[in-house]
C-alpha cells in the first residue's frame, strides 16, 4: 500500500484501532456489509446444507485462510480494507459472497465447467454468455466457475442493467462483487485495465423468457459489447450455460403486477408464488458451462467499432457460436436433473 505523506501510518492506524475497539456498535446494528448478503442468501444456503452430503460453507478457494475469521471481522469493522475505483471489494467477494455461492455451485447444481483454457490468465477478455432462469443465477455461477476453477482464479466483472444499480441491497452487493453498469465507458475502462468482463447481451429478454422458449437465444441487444471489445482489441469468449433454464421454469408472467412493482416481468413458476418462500428454492438442475474458443478482435482495422456492419456481423457470429455450443452441451447432458 502506498504511504502518502502526512498519513503517518503508524500512530494514526493504531489510534484508529484503539478508537474502534471501544465504541463498537452492538451486534444488532452490525455492519451492513456483513448483514445484507446474509439476508439475501440464507434460503438457498440453508437448503443446500440440508441437501449436501458434506456441508462445508467454509471457503475452499485460494487465499481463504490467510488469516482467521476473527481478524477478518475485526478488519472489516474497522473499515481497514480497500476497494477499487468501481467499488469492487475482493476480500468480501472471496470470503463472503463466493463462499455462499460455492455450495450451490458444487452440490446443488453440480456444475461442470469446460473450456477454461480459452480464458486468458492475465489479459482482458469479454465473456459473452446466454442468459436464462428468471433470476441471474447463471451469472453468479459463471463467476464462481472462473474464480474457483480457472488456474489464475479470475474475478469476473459483469456489466449489469440499470435496475441492478437502482435496487437497494442488490446495488450494494453488485458493486462490491465488482460489477458495474453496462455502458461503453465502464466496459472499455475494465477491458483496457486487463480485467475479465462478463456480459449477458440478451438481458431481461433472456432471463425473463417463458420456459417454452428454453435454450433459444433472444436478440443480442444492439451489439454494444462487440463495439467495446473492438475498441479495446480484446478477444470475445462465447460462453454457453446449460442448466439455468430449469432452475425456475417460468410458466407465466404476471405483467400487471410487474408494472406495478416496476419490474421487467413477474415470474410465475410451478412453485412460485404458490408455495411462498419455498418457491424461491431453485430446482436442482444439472449445469454445464463451456467457455468457447476466443474470437479475436485485433485483426480488424482502426475504427471498426464505428462500422455498424462489422459490429452486426460479429454479434451474429458470437450468437451463432453460443447457440451451437448450447446444442452440443444439451446432447452431452443425460437429463435436465441428471
Amino acid at each position: 500500500m502506498e504511504v502518502p505523506p502526512g498519513r503517518t501510518a503508524g500512530p494514526s492506524k493504531a489510534a484508529r484501532l484503539v478508537g474502534n475497539t471501544g465504541p463498537q456498535p452492538t451486534p444488532t446494528r452490525s455492519a451492513p456489509g456483513a448483514r445484507l448478503p446474509a439476508a439475501r442468501a440464507p434460503r438457498k444456503a440453508k437448503r443446500v446444507l440440508v441437501a449436501a452430503p458434506t456441508p462445508s460453507p467454509m471457503p475452499q478457494g485460494p487465499g481463504a485462510d490467510t488469516d482467521s475469521w476473527l481478524d477478518f471481522a475485526r478488519r472489516r469493522l474497522a473499515g481497514d480494507y480497500s476497494v477499487d475505483d468501481f467499488g469492487f471489494d475482493p476480500e468480501f467477494t472471496d470470503r463472503v459472497l463466493l463462499a455462499m455461492l460455492r455450495p450451490l455451485y458444487t452440490s446443488w447444481f453440480r456444475v461442470e465447467t469446460t473450456g477454461l483454457e480459452n480464458v486468458p490468465a492475465e489479459s482482458g477478455a469479454l465473456v459473452v454468455a446466454n442468459h436464462s432462469g428468471t433470476i441471474a443465477l447463471d451469472a453468479a455461477m459463471t463467476q464462481v466457475a472462473l474464480h474457483d476453477e480457472h488456474p489464475a482464479h479470475r474475478h469476473l466483472r459483469m456489466l449489469g442493467a440499470n435496475l441492478v444499480f437502482q435496487t437497494p441491497v442488490v446495488a450494494d452487493i453488485a458493486r462490491k462483487a465488482g460489477h458495474t453498469l453496462a455502458c461503453h465507458p465502464d466496459a472499455e475502462r475494465l477491458l483496457s485495465a486487463g480485467e475479465l468482463v462478463g456480459v449477458w447481451p440478451e438481458g431481461f429478454k433472456g432471463v425473463g423468457k417463458p420456459f417454452s422458449q428454453r435454450y433459444k437465444l433472444q436478440r443480442f441487444g444492439r451489439g454494444g459489447f462487440v463495439a467495446a471489445a473492438l475498441r479495446t482489441r480484446t478477444p470475445i469468449i462465447p460462453t454457453a450455460i446449460v442448466g439455468a433454464e430449469e432452475t425456475y421454469p417460468m410458466i407465466g408472467n404476471a405483467s400487471l403486477l410487474a408494472r406495478i412493482l416496476g419490474l421487467p416481468y413477474f415470474p410465475i413458476t410451478p412453485t412460485w408464488p404458490w408455495l411462498g418462500p419455498l418457491g424461491l428454492v431453485p430446482l436442482p438442475s444439472k449445469w454445464l458451462i463451456h467457455f468457447g474458443e476466443p474470437i479475436p478482435t485485433d485483426s480488424y482495422p482502426e475504427g471498426a467499432a464505428d462500422d455498424p456492419m462489422v459490429v452486426f456481423n460479429l454479434t451474429d457470429q458470437v450468437r451463432e457460436q453460443i447457440q451451437q455450443s448450447i446444442y452440443r452441451l444439451l446432447v452431452k447432458r443425460p437429463s435436465a436433473f441428471g
Binding site: 484508529r16 478508537g19 474502534n20 471501544g22 465504541p23 456498535p25 446494528r29 455492519a31 451492513p32 456489509g33 472489516r76 469493522l77 474497522a78 473499515g79 481497514d80 480494507y81 480497500s82 476497494v83 477499487d84 475505483d85 467499488g87 471489494d89 437497494p168 462490491k176
Partner: peptide, 22 residues
C-alpha cells in the same frame, strides 16, 4: 486517487451509525 465506500469511511471514524431507508 482511489475511492472509499461510505460504510468503510463511517467505520474508520469510529462513530456509531444507523441504517435508514432512503
Amino acid at each position: 486517487d482511489g475511492v472509499l465506500l461510505l460504510s468503510q469511511a463511517v467505520r474508520r471514524t469510529g462513530r456509531r451509525w444507523i441504517i435508514v431507508p432512503r
